[in-house]
Computed example of a mutant assay.
Amino acid sequence: MGDCLQRTDDEDDADAEAEGLRKIIHVDMDAFFASVEQRDNPELRGKPVAVGGSSGRGVVAAASYEARKFGVKSAMPSVTAKRKCPDLIFVKSRFDAYREVSQQIRAIFRDYTDHVEPLSLDEAYLDVTEDRKGLGSATAIAQDIRRRIREETRLTASAGVSYNKFLAKLASDQNKPDGICVIRPGQGAGFVQSLPIRRFHGVGPKAEEKMKRLGIETGADLAAKDLAWLTAHFGSFGEYLFRAARAVDLRPVRANRMRKSVGGERTFGEDQSEDGELRETLDRIVDIVWERIERAGAKGRTVTLKLKYNDFTLHTRAKSVAQLVADKATFAAMARELLEEELPLPRPIRLMGLTLSNLEGVVPKDRRPPDAQLSLL
Score class of each variant (00 low, 15 high):
95 F>R: 11
61 A>N: 01
8 T>Q: 08
42 P>Y: 02
87 D>V: 03
54 S>W: 12
7 R>G: 07
52 G>W: 09
86 P>D: 03
67 A>I: 10
50 A>G: 07
67 A>C: 08
94 R>V: 02
47 K>C: 07
85 C>M: 03
92 K>M: 13
22 R>H: 06
16 A>W: 00
26 H>C: 10
61 A>M: 00
26 H>G: 14
70 F>G: 00
29 M>W: 11
39 R>A: 01
18 A>P: 05
53 G>E: 10
38 Q>R: 13
86 P>L: 05
96 D>M: 01
50 A>N: 03
89 I>V: 15
74 S>P: 08
98 Y>I: 00
64 S>W: 07
47 K>E: 13
34 A>S: 10
15 D>R: 15
9 D>N: 12
69 K>E: 15
56 G>I: 08
94 R>Q: 08
18 A>V: 03
82 K>P: 10
31 A>N: 07
27 V>R: 01
37 E>P: 02
95 F>W: 14
63 A>D: 04
86 P>Y: 06
100 E>A: 06
50 A>E: 04
57 R>D: 14
92 K>F: 03
18 A>K: 12
28 D>H: 01
74 S>Q: 02
63 A>C: 01
75 A>V: 06
89 I>H: 04
49 V>N: 11
84 K>H: 11
20 G>R: 07
63 A>E: 07
62 A>K: 01
44 L>D: 02
60 V>S: 11
79 V>R: 13
51 V>I: 14
71 G>D: 08
19 E>K: 06
11 E>D: 12
36 V>P: 14
11 E>R: 08
41 N>A: 09
73 K>R: 14
70 F>D: 02
60 V>W: 09
53 G>V: 07
41 N>C: 06
91 V>G: 02
13 D>N: 10
25 I>G: 06
85 C>Y: 05
43 E>H: 05
77 P>M: 06
48 P>M: 03
78 S>C: 10
74 S>D: 05
77 P>N: 08
72 V>H: 14
81 A>E: 05
45 R>C: 08
18 A>W: 09
66 E>Q: 13
35 S>P: 10
88 L>K: 01
99 R>E: 09
65 Y>E: 11
88 L>I: 06
43 E>Y: 05
89 I>T: 14
47 K>F: 10
15 D>N: 10
22 R>C: 09
95 F>N: 12
68 R>C: 13
60 V>E: 08
99 R>F: 13
92 K>Y: 04
53 G>M: 07
67 A>K: 07
12 D>M: 08
13 D>F: 04
55 S>N: 15
18 A>Y: 06
98 Y>P: 00
70 F>H: 11
27 V>L: 13
64 S>F: 08
41 N>Q: 12
18 A>E: 15
18 A>G: 06
31 A>R: 01
41 N>Y: 04
35 S>N: 05
22 R>A: 10
66 E>G: 11
71 G>N: 11
93 S>L: 04
72 V>Y: 12
99 R>T: 10
81 A>T: 03
19 E>N: 04
6 Q>I: 09
7 R>H: 14
